[in-house]
Design a protein around this nucleic acid. Structure first.
Length: 876
DNA sequence: TAAGTCACGC
DNA sequence: GACGTACGTGACTTAT
């Protein structure tokens, strides 16, 4: 077997990791982001490459032999941030524990060590692979030397061999130094020839091979200016080339065969990982299975067979356990109650049949502390066991305190909040196919612990909510809403199966015809749904121009295909095929599969503790993304029908709720006036941005204004806006600037949001929903910019979410009082869907509009449109 | 089983 | 000058 040597440019990777990752630190305040990134990269390399030999090279001191040639070498480079330099020793500790060799040599850079060893290994016929973030190293590429450059993040790399290098730059490895000689390198302060950039340099090298070649043929260089520049800077070009040249003859004692990859020192490694707080990596390196299960002493859990009312006090924690994700058909495997009388395990039989338990469960005055109230209520509901008095939902509390927390699992919350420790469900039940119910001993212990932990956590989380002024958000909004959502889910939405099948049949027929036509146009049969195969057909076989690549190959996304539409007849067909295929598989087949056998209806699950903005999400199936934009898809809505005879579907939606919220929060005079006069907001924006009168607004202007408003509402970047409008980034930025000039109140609001986020670390909505933005202080421009846009956007989107949630709570009560025979079925972010007796539809319509519009008073009116019909399609 | 790509909604 | 760009869910393919 050939030996395989992996060489890593330690400093380069550390830099990359440091800037790519947020500034993490461990519990002792030591920064760990660079070490973390470096470690994940090492693990990936070890796993993917399985090297026999390995070395990580580091730069030594400040000066190297290159400084003898050019004092200013690396002169412009900023001092290594102390947050990074303090991590470098940790990386050495880590390498020691991994038993991977590392080396630094006075006067030389890591590059030179790598170059020397790579050449030596190659001479012995070894395979070598180099990992770095520095393109300079490409000069080392050879028959058996590959160079992997980090792409995005740290674990993603592009690997170059001779062919790849030629494809990308049209250069041989040795020409990389000529390239640098001509174009220079600002990061190393290598001057090159002023006025020559990558494009020019590549052109020159294509014609004349090397720097020397360029000067030998200097008369052949076109352009007077260019020729002058070259002649003027000849010495500098040669010097730059020399600076960029990696030395492959460093006087090293180390030979490749001295670098065998040793055995990991697991003890050292786990200790180090623990110290650094790399929990996730601990599991990844294995050997720590036993340690992963938290050491816990046994908790006293009573396995009761008879229940007495004395076991149930005024306030108890209640756990109702089921394994299936989908609680609409989940089997209850057990439960537990914890209070000052003790901790009691409940068998499924007790839960379902014991009258003492059921009496207590349905008594709203007996307060229950629960984890995911909706799940407990609905899964019990399907067994006809009413549950009331769910007063405090620990999961919801955790979500409201920090929606961005890494997870809202019981075990994780318990760790975060220092409550009684609980095993992870996955550790107890297993996952995937291996999931199973454990014996009663284990189960009662696990559930008992959960219940006991709930008591702990409630106290802690309630205190934190109080401090954040978020207790009302929990008790008055989210908790009542969770019960309403639970009822909506359990009630379900009726669908017309025949209608779905009919739509499906016609789609299938069309898809078959289209498939044949596409194969015919392509001249061969292939899987249209495979981006890989499709890419090969379009870009290799049909030779269409490549617009964009993904990391696995050609991009075939809709925006790419649209650009190719006039090049080949096949493109339109593919786009339509995709669209119809999506309808068929996701919506027709997906919805048919989601129909509940017993009820014949669809029961979605709203996740109320997931999104970062406070919106709901919907799963199994997702009923918040039923097509509407294109008529073909909109037809799906024909299948959503009332569940009783003589009923209608009514849909009520907020008009421009986010922009109205923006007007209110920002107090922008123009925007407020516009909404008070109920103007068409996109036309108004067009008037302001293009500085024209209403009559002069063209449909194109309105379309642009609409996209700008869309961008403001969703917090997209200049890039995002440029993509949606098909313009360049500069133009997009101009629109944004013009918008902010027109609405100075909005501009101030945006700035204030950013300031607030930077100061507090979080932003809030009108109802005290929070979102933490740790990246506000990131040195990484992208992360920071994204955080800034989020700071501007989340109060708007989040407040809109608050408002509709409150409207749902109000509406539930209003419906109850009104005596109207109607049911709330769905919420789709800014709209509510009902089914209602035909005779009462007008009454409901008036009520819904009133309740939704008046749920919260802003400085601009909230506007609601309502419509109804025999199906969801007709309620438009 | 996980990752990547694509497409639907607001 | 590069970076990689609103929030979600689900279907499908492909590699492991």
């Amino acid at each position: 077997m050939t030996n395989k040597l992996v060489l890593v440019d330690g400093n380069s990777i550390a830099y990359r990791a440091f800037f790519a990752l947020p500034l993490l630190n461990n519990d002792k305040g030591v920064y760990t982001n660079a070490v973390y990134g470096f470690t994940t990269m090492l693990l990936k390399v070890l796993e993917d490459e399985k090297p026999t030999h390995m070395l990580v090279a580091f730069d030594a001191g400040k000066t190297t032999f290159r400084h003898d040639t050019y004092k200013e070498y690396k002169g412009t480079r900023q001092k290594t941030p102390p947050e990074l330099s303090e991590q470098l020793p940790l990386m050495r500790d880590l390498l020691q524990a991994f038993n991977i060799a590392f080396e630094e040599v006075e006067n030389y850079e890591a590059d030179d060590i790598i170059g020397t060893l790579a050449k030596r290994a190659a001479a012995d016929g070894w395979d070598t692979k180099i990992f770095t973030g520095d393109k300079d190293l490409l000069q080392l590429v050879d028959k058996n030397i590959l160079v992997s450059l980090t792409r995005k993040g740290i674990t993603n790399v592009d690997t170059y061999d001779l062919a790849a290098l030629n494809e990308k730059y049209g250069l041989k490895p040795a020409q990389i130094i000529d390239l640098k000689g001509l174009m220079g390198d600002s990061s190393d302060n290598i001057p090159g020839v002023p006025g020559v950039g990558e494009k020019t340099a590549l052109k020159l090298l294509a014609a004349h091979e090397t720097v020397e070649g360029v000067y030998e043929n200097i008369e052949a260089v076109s352009g007077k200016k260019m020729k002058e520049k070259l002649i003027e800077n000849e010495d500098q070009a040669y010097m730059s080339k020399k600076l960029a040249t990696i030395l492959t003859e460093v006087p090293l004692k180390t030979k490749p065969e001295d670098l065998p990859l040793g055995e990991r020192n697991m003890e050292q490694l786990t200790e180090l990982f623990k110290e650094l707080g790399f929990q996730s990596l601990l599991t990844r390196i294995g050997g720590e299975e036993a340690e992963e299960t938290i050491e816990m002493e046994d908790l006293e859990v009573e396995k009761v067979t008879e229940l007495t009312s004395g076991m149930f006090t005024e306030e108890s924690a209640l756990v109702i356990e089921s394994l299936e994700d989908n609680y609409h058909h989940a089997e209850i495997i057990g439960g537990a109650v914890a209070n000052d009388k003790g901790v009691f395990y409940l068998t499924p039989e007790l839960i379902k049949e014991n009258s003492t338990f059921k009496e207590w469960a349905k008594d709203p005055d007996k307060k229950k502390i629960v984890f995911n109230a909706k799940r407990a209520v609905v899964s019990l509901g399907w067994q006809d066991i009413p549950l009331a008095g769910a007063a405090f939902d620990v999961q919801m509390a955790s979500y409201l305190l920090d929606p961005g927390a890494s997870s809202h699992d019981m075990a994780d919350i318990a760790i975060r909040k220092n409550g009684m420790q609980v095993q992870a469900d996955e550790a107890v039940y297993g996952k995937g196919k291996k999931q199973q119910v454990p014996g009663e001993e284990v189960l009662s212990q696990h559930l008992g612990r959960k219940a006991a932990a709930l008591l702990d956590l409630k106290k802690e989380l309630e205190k934190e909510l109080e401090e954040n002024k978020q207790l009302e958000l929990l008790t008055e909004l989210e908790m009542p809403l969770s019960l309403i959502l639970g009822r909506m889910e359990k009630h379900g939405v009726a669908v017309d199966k025949e209608e779905l099948r009919k739509l499906g049949d016609s789609l299938t027929e069309r898809l078959n015809e289209m498939e044949a036509k596409i194969h015919d146009l392509a001249g061969t049969s292939f899987n249209i749904n495979s981006p890989k195969q499709l890419g090969e057909i379009l870009f290799d076989k049909l030779q269409l121009p490549v617009i964009k690549k993904t990391k696995t190959g050609y991009s075939t996304s809709a925006d790419v295909l649209e650009k190719l539409a006039d090049q080949h007849e096949i493109i339109q067909e593919i786009l339509l095929y995709r669209q119809l295929g999506k309808l068929n598989s996701t919506y027709i087949e997906g919805l048919l599969k989601a129909i509940n056998d017993k009820t014949g209806k669809i029961h979605t699950m709203f996740n109320q503790a997931l999104t970062q903005t406070g919106r709901l999400s919907s799963t199994e199936p997702n009923l918040q993304n039923i097509p509407i934009r294109l008529e073909e898809g909109r037809k799906i809505r024909h299948a959503f029908v009332p569940s009783k005879d003589n009923c209608l579907i009514l849909a009520a939606d907020y008009s421009q709720i986010e922009l109205r919220v923006l007007a209110h929060i920002s107090q922008d005079k123009t925007l407020i006036e516009a909404f008070r006069h109920d103007m068409d907001i996109h036309t108004k924006t067009a008037m302001d941005v293009f500085e024209v009168e209403k009559e002069e607004v063209t449909s194109e202007m309105r379309r642009t204004a609409k996209a700008v408003n869309f961008g403001i509402v969703y917090g997209i970047s200049d890039y995002g806006l440029s993509q949606s409008l098909g313009i360049n980034r500069k133009q997009a930025q101009r629109f944004i600037d013009k918008y902010l000039e027109s609405y100075p109140g909005v501009r101030d609001y945006m700035q204030n949001s950013i300031d607030e986020a930077r100061e507090n670390g979080y932003v809030t909505t009108m109802m005290q929903r929070r979102r933490y933005l740790p990246d506000m202080t990131s040195r990484n421009f992208n992360l920071r910019s994204a955080a800034e846009r989020t700071a501007m956007n989340t109060p708007i989107q989040g407040t809109a979410a608050d408002i509709i949630k409150k409207a749902m709570v109000d509406m539930d009560e209003a419906l109850e009082k009104s005596g109207i025979d109607a049911k709330m079925l769905l919420q789709v972010h800014d709209e509510l869907i009902f089914e209602v007796q035909e005779s009462q539809v007008e009454e409901l319509s008036k009520l819904v509009i009133k309740v939704m519009e008046q749920t919260l008073e802003l400085d601009v009116p909230l506007k609601v449109d309502a419509d109804y019909g025999k199906t969801w399609y007709d309620a438009k």
